Simulated assay, not measured.
Amino acid sequence: MRIELTGKKALVTGSSQGIGLAVAAGLAEAGADVVITGRDAAKLRAAADSLDAAGFAGTVTPVAADLSGAAGAHALFEAVPAVDVLVNNLGIFEPRDFFDIDDEEWLRFFEVNVLSGIRTARHYLPGMVENGWGRVVFVSSESALQIPPEMMHYGATKTMQLGVARGLAERMAGTGVTVNSVLPGTTFSEGVSDFVVKMGANAHLSPREQTDAFVKEHRPTSIIQRAVGTEEVANLVVYLSSEQAAATTGSAVSVDGGIRRAIF
């Protein structure tokens, strides 16, 4: 199966590194012209340069914007009025005991992990409906279904993403626009590996080996017994962004290595 997205414009939020950057690469390789976003303009420019150097068929355009607030979202919409594919990847996580999470922190996680995606979907979906074609993918987490007790604020926001995505899919019925979620498990990305390395265990191992060891110890139900690769998550997102995935909508699709012990 060859996925062809030539002529489509895609936006991937939170894409200067990790899953977002891998998704941008996959979409550009399939021919889409991709907009990547992040708060750090220099880091974003370096990410765009790295994708340009790969020689993908699609172009890559960096737009620096802080999507944790309405002002940053408005700046993005001014720069990028319409897209065909929207990947809401922006997200933050941080282990913290429930009794240490104050109201401000709960609101910060909601603003970044949930409301940023609501704002972008609210802006871009009408144009997709008018064109009769569009794809929206929310990058959630297996933590949406198995709330981690050490990160309840993170898990709760990821569950909310699933609710928003399912509701939007039903709202888009019959329009040619699909809305889905993907649920990665522990993924070997800069953020996750930095977190694992800071834990200090297995310091004699490489970051990748430490992350895999973390999965084996703290996510023992993983069937693949290792961290998921960012490109493995990206492959699923790119498929859901394609014409071939036209009959998949309103779904929450796992790419967690089998961590969650469930048939469906």
Rank of each mutant, 00 (worst) to 15 (best):
Q225G: 00
S222T: 06
A70E: 15
G174E: 01
T230G: 07
G167C: 05
G14Y: 01
R226K: 06
E130R: 02
P149T: 12
V23N: 11
Q17T: 11
A156H: 13
V12N: 11
T59S: 10
R219M: 09
D97N: 13
G174K: 06
I118S: 00
V179A: 05
I3K: 08
M172A: 07
A25T: 13
E170M: 10
D66S: 05
E78C: 11
A48K: 06
V182S: 10
D66G: 13
Q146N: 14
T120W: 01
L107S: 12
R226N: 01
M172Q: 10
G155F: 11
A73S: 14
P148E: 06
A10K: 01
L115S: 00
T211Q: 02
D40K: 06
T248P: 14
I36N: 12
V196K: 04
D52Q: 15
F264S: 11
R261V: 14
T221V: 10
G91N: 04
V179P: 04
S15I: 15
G14E: 06
A30H: 05
V253W: 14
G163K: 05
M172C: 09
V255H: 11
Q210F: 01
E209W: 06
G55K: 02
A32E: 06
V129Q: 10
F195D: 01
Y124A: 07
V164W: 07
D212S: 02
A169L: 03
S15F: 06
Q244T: 11
G258D: 13
S140L: 02
V215L: 00
R171G: 05
D52K: 09
L183I: 10
G14M: 12
D194V: 00
P95M: 08
H74Y: 14
L236F: 10
R261Q: 09
E231M: 08
P220N: 05
Y124W: 09
D256S: 08
Q225F: 00
L67A: 13
A252E: 13
V137Q: 10
F99Y: 13
W133D: 07
V164F: 11
V136W: 08
D102F: 04
D40P: 12
G69H: 13
E29T: 13
V237N: 02
D52W: 07
G191I: 08
Y154C: 07
M152C: 04
S16W: 10
R226H: 03
N89Y: 14
V233G: 15
R96A: 11
H153I: 10
E111Y: 03
G58E: 03
G229L: 10
V34M: 08
S222E: 07
S141Q: 14
P184E: 11
E190R: 09
R96K: 14
K158D: 08
G55P: 05
F99Q: 09
F109T: 00
A75M: 12
V63K: 09
L240C: 13
E190C: 01
A71E: 14
L44R: 03
